[in-house]
Design a protein around this nucleic acid. Structure first.
Length: 116
DNA sequence: ATTTTGACGACGT
DNA sequence: GACGTCGCCAAAA
């Protein structure tokens, strides 16, 4: 990646930081926000670099559409991801977010300011 | 430039 | 409804 140019990854990191505490989102949602709904895999890939990013990227708030902590193995410790989520008030059971639908946060909601 | 991959998602069986 | 397969896009090897 070239610093002079913002890569697709940078976009993903920025959206991830927009996730409010106690909320979670899915890779597909972020991809859709970027305009590439089918590039959910790219979002996860970008997260692989998230550890290199200077600003802390709340990757633990990003899970797959099923609400499962698929990327927990990529953290310093597999338990860290679940632990961080629980720290924010999110209940995680069996590597899956309980009541995921309630905690789900769509980046588009950030754009949508008021009722239609 | 070509091939492989990858923290997903939707569709088909 | 669980399991399997294909598709998709972009970056790294």
């Amino acid at each position: 990646m070239v610093p002079s140019k913002i890569s697709f990854f940078e976009n993903v990191y920025e959206v991830a930081r927009l996730i409010p505490m106690g909320r979670v989102t899915s890779y597909g949602a972020i991809g859709a926000y970027l305009g590439s709904a089918k590039s959910a895999r790219m979002v996860g890939w970008a997260m692989n670099n998230a550890h290199h990013q200077k600003p802390t990227v709340p990757a633990h708030r990003v899970v797959n559409r099923n609400g499962m902590l698929t990327g927990k193995f990529h953290f310093a410790s597999a338990n860290d991801m679940q632990r961080l989520l629980e720290s924010e008030g999110i209940e995680v059971k069996h590597d899956r977010i309980v009541n995921f639908n309630a905690y789900f946060w769509d980046p588009r909601e950030h754009l949508k300011i008021g009722p239609k």
